[in-house]
Amino acid sequence: MAALRRRDTDAGPEPVVRTGGGLLPFGVVDVDGPSMVPTLYDGDKVVVKYGARIRAGAVVLVRHPMRQDLLVVKRAAERRSKGWWLLSDNQFLGNDSRDFGPVPQELVLGRVLLRVSPSVGWLAPAHWLERLLCRWPLGRVPGLAARFGVARGRLSPSR
């Protein structure tokens, strides 16, 4: 798959990404910035499924609503009437929906499925697996849900 790479010169806490293109609904994206720590770190490579169904808790790739040439990775906290409310996993950094409001559905490009580098990590389990990992007895195993990309207790959208 040929990759079209794009570099953004904006330095700052926002996760700038460079994305691949092609005929397949999948692409590899480089994450740049600390806003998704501890889920994703600067330099991680992730696989995105373009056009995938989004649900609350998913890590998504979107066009920044104020700078649509900038692609960002955020967590979809909840769906609102005007779009998705997106949050950074790193609560100490802004530049998410707390700053720019809900992101329209047409700016949501896809769902981040897994991290492939530097280590493999699944970020989008099936809905049935997510429910299973949150219930007893598996829900009692420390860190198990997080290893499968289930975000529990992290989503606290402010209105």
Rank of each mutant, 00 (worst) to 15 (best):
L109Y: 03
A76E: 07
P15S: 10
P15Q: 02
G149Q: 08
P34S: 00
R5D: 11
L24C: 08
S117K: 13
W136T: 14
D89Y: 00
T19R: 13
E130C: 07
D32F: 12
M36Y: 11
D30T: 15
D89Q: 00
D32S: 09
V31D: 03
L114M: 11
P118S: 02
I54V: 14
N95A: 15
A2S: 13
K74A: 04
C134S: 15
A124G: 01
N95Y: 12
W128K: 09
L123G: 12
D69N: 08
P13L: 11
K82I: 03
L71W: 12
G143V: 01
Y50T: 10
D44V: 03
Q91I: 13
H127R: 13
D42H: 04
R147I: 06
R53W: 03
P34Y: 09
L61P: 02
P125F: 09
Q105E: 13
G153N: 07
L113A: 06
R135L: 15
V103D: 08
T39Y: 08
D30N: 14
A52T: 01
R131S: 15
G110C: 04
L87C: 06
L113H: 01
A3W: 14
P102D: 08
R75G: 00
P13A: 12
W136P: 13
V150T: 09
V103A: 05
A145D: 06
A56E: 06
G12E: 10
F26I: 08
N95P: 04
D8Y: 08
L107W: 04
P137L: 07
R147E: 13
S119T: 15
V59M: 02
M36P: 00
V17P: 03
P102Y: 07
V31I: 07
L87H: 00
D30I: 15
G22D: 05
V150W: 07
E106V: 10
R147P: 01
A151V: 12
L23I: 10
M66V: 15
P15I: 07
P118G: 09
W84A: 01
T9L: 15
R53P: 00
